[in-house]
Design a protein around this nucleic acid. Sequence first.
RNA 1: GCGACUUUGGUGAAGUGGUUAACACGUCGGAUUGUGGCUCCGAUAUGCGUGGGUUCGAUCCCCAUGAGUCGCCCCA
Length: 418
Amino acid sequence: MLTNAPRGTKDILPEQSANWIRLENKIRELCKLYGYEEIRTPTFEHTELFLRGIGEGTDVVDKEMYTFKDRGDRSITLRPENTASVVRAYLQNKLFANGGLVKLYYIGSMFRYDRPQAGRLREFHQFGVEALGEKNPAVDAEIILLAWEFLKSLGLEDLTLKINTVGCPACRPIYRRKLTEFFTEEIDELCEDCRRRLEKNPLRILDCKIDGLKDFMDDAPKIETCLCDDCREHFNGVKKLLTAAGIPFAIDNRLVRGLDYYTKTAFEIQYAPLGAQSAVAGGGRYDGLIKEIGGDDTPAVGFAAGLERILLALELQNLLPAQDKKISAFVVSGGSAAEIYAFKLLTDLRRKNIAAAMDFGGKSMKSQMKAAAKSGAKFALIVGEDEVETSTVTVKNLETAAQEKIPVAEVDKLNFDT
RNA sequence: GCGACUUUGGUGAAGUGGUUAACACGUCGGAUUGUGGCUCCGAUAUGCGUGGGUUCGAUCCCCAUGAGUCGCCCCA
């Protein structure tokens, strides 16, 4: 127990860490390119924020939140996603005050109590982007493009982008009612889960793995038939822009989002080889959320991407480069007389910005040489009594095995390039 | 939350109801005097996820529990 991290959590070890840093740097670079700025919100929030933001009745809220009372008897929840927090911060700090579109991104841990699997952890990491304050479909397109170009730029192949519109408060209820009517007639054909969904969220029946394949599904009402003019126009606008940008997308009118706040555009990017956890990024428009949380009626769009899943995908495609932990020089000290001399040499090298290491275990020279070879250093800098007396250092090129003795003051003149 | 599978050393793993738990890699040490990568030699699990039980005896059988993986669910 003491030596086990809690279920669903994972240490990111040094060899992995470099991949995370690379990924995060890529994200920051890209966001800068698109004009998004980083925001960092607290890891936990008042529970109420998520109840209102994500919506009671959603799985995330009902079954997956880490909620507890703090010592002041406040109900606190570890964020299961970051959009609600960003919106809260936007309102609290009046980021709307300067007018115009507010473009933000975040990278951080999220928490959901769920059965762990590869690509599904209880503490996981998301990178996400939110654009608040503009209803123009161009923003939807920009966000989708950012997500798509990001994943492509990592080198991922076989990505599929699916888009849909889920309507707005004006037209979705109509569609929902039609669906309910339709599926009620087919209730005998529905699977157990879908009978449950019929009341809770009939839209979900559309992407059921079991019922989705059944014949009657083709006759299910399509959302296009119910869209209001505004939503239809908006969706057309998004499609036109995506086409203009030249990215491939598929319209999937069965794509729905699990969180209540989505309106109009919904999209998802999948990487099929990940199996059940193939959704690598997902998002959409949430024009109702800001008002729901207490702000003025403000349109917004965003998406989130799962970093663990992206890393898994990169690994599957062999896109994670081998670690380069090479140093330039390895100091080898022969005998106790040279120890201080060696340590001073080590320090001098580092002060001159030369990556250097030495063995602190008091081992034989032979094993120090082995360690030098393993370290990947270009040079072994050998110092013993002779060198101490003459203020020199024996330089052995570990690639060529060539060896020479030079004044210690001249070590930084060596050519450390590999 | 449901179902299935897995669980042996630092790693990959073989294995049996009963004397020393294969093998490989890794790690450590050694093969004359201050020198690596190759080779050779030696060392390296009193232990078989954890806790019970059955048995003269269990790593191998039974029960419970933990963890991981896959699918469902959900989602990033």
